[in-house]
């Protein structure tokens, strides 16, 4: 049981936090701009490398340098929206989906060009995990990731329910025509969607890069699970996406636990298939997700 918590549940919550932060952006972009953003994983990669570069020059803890990565990711997101997505906005959204595939490739090749294609670590060396009550062994990083994600989730909740901008975002997501008639500036909402989505993606990218290492495929490899999380939470429901991310993360990790016999239930090498099957099952049987998201 202790093993289950230490080796499966906490890592599951950690990777789940990464999925959650990425899925918020995917869910908001899907809700407001109505397309599946396939470059979101690579936006995470860009943010992660931004912080990695900052760490080379400023000897501070990577998490304190997060704003650098956020700024880079926000700049990248606003630029691709302006040059590549906006001109296609009048067309069927599937063209924007294709464009976002291209943007994913552009981001990745830029990452390989500027930061090389190898693995790079934020902080080298192994640090012993923290021990609580002589039983729970949790690494410092995992604790930081989970707590920071919870703080972000609470802040996001208040932003969406209390602030004028947050409510405008929800309005555009729920009823775009009505929101436009009510005089909401849709382009402003779109810009802020990118800002928030990219900032959270950068955070997720740094978390994922610190947990393992930075490499150009980091974000793309996480994309599928983040889509699953966004669908699970309900498209256009940022808080649902957070819940969805945590659930997918825990499901992936605990699926490899020795539930029935001494063998893992699912071989760890097939771990990433779990998210896929959850997503397909949801799309077929409950496409609106857990929290009544929109149906496209």
């Amino acid at each position: 049981m202790i093993d289950f918590i230490n080796l499966y549940l906490v890592p599951g919550l950690t990777i789940g936090s990464v999925y959650a932060l990425g899925a918020v952006g995917i869910s908001m972009i899907f809700g407001i701009l109505r397309f599946a953003h396939f470059a979101h994983g690579d936006l995470m990669t860009i943010g992660g490398y931004g912080v990695l570069t900052a760490v080379w020059f400023i000897p501070l803890h990577p998490l304190l340098l997060l704003p650098v990565g956020m700024a880079l990711a926000i700049g990248a997101a606003l630029a691709v929206d302006e040059f590549f997505y906006k001109p296609l906005r009048k067309l069927p959204t599937i063209y924007t989906v294709i464009a976002s595939f291209g943007v994913a490739l552009i981001f990745r090749s830029l990452a390989q060009l500027f930061w090389s294609s190898g693995n790079q670590v934020f902080v080298s060396g192994v640090r012993p995990p923290m021990v609580f009550f002589d039983t729970f062994r949790i690494s410092e990083l995992h604790l930081q990731v989970i707590i920071l994600t919870l703080i972000i989730a609470v802040a996001l909740h208040f932003f969406l329910t209390r602030s004028k901008l947050g409510r405008a975002m929800r309005a555009v997501s729920d009823e775009p025509e009505l929101a436009a008639v009510a005089g909401l500036d849709t382009e402003r909402v779109v810009r802020w969607t990118w800002v928030i989505g990219a900032a959270l993606a950068a955070t997720a990218g740094v978390f994922a890069g610190m947990d393992t290492s930075m490499h150009p495929n980091l974000g793309w490899n996480l994309l599928l699970a983040m889509f699953a999380a966004a669908v699970l939470g309900g498209i256009g429901k940022p808080m649902g996406a957070i819940a969805g991310g945590l659930i997918i993360g825990i499901a992936e990790e605990t699926a490899t636990f020795t539930w029935l016999s001494d063998e893992p239930l699912i071989s760890p090498s097939y771990k990433s298939a779990v998210a896929f099957f959850i997503m397909v099952a949801l799309l077929l049987f409950r496409p609106q997700g857990l929290f009544k998201g929109r149906l496209l």
Partner: peptide, 13 residues
């Protein structure tokens, strides 16, 4: 369409 795109990426994976 968008969901089929996501699913097909997963299948290739």
């Amino acid at each position: 369409s968008d969901y089929l795109a996501m699913a097909s990426v997963g299948i290739a994976e």
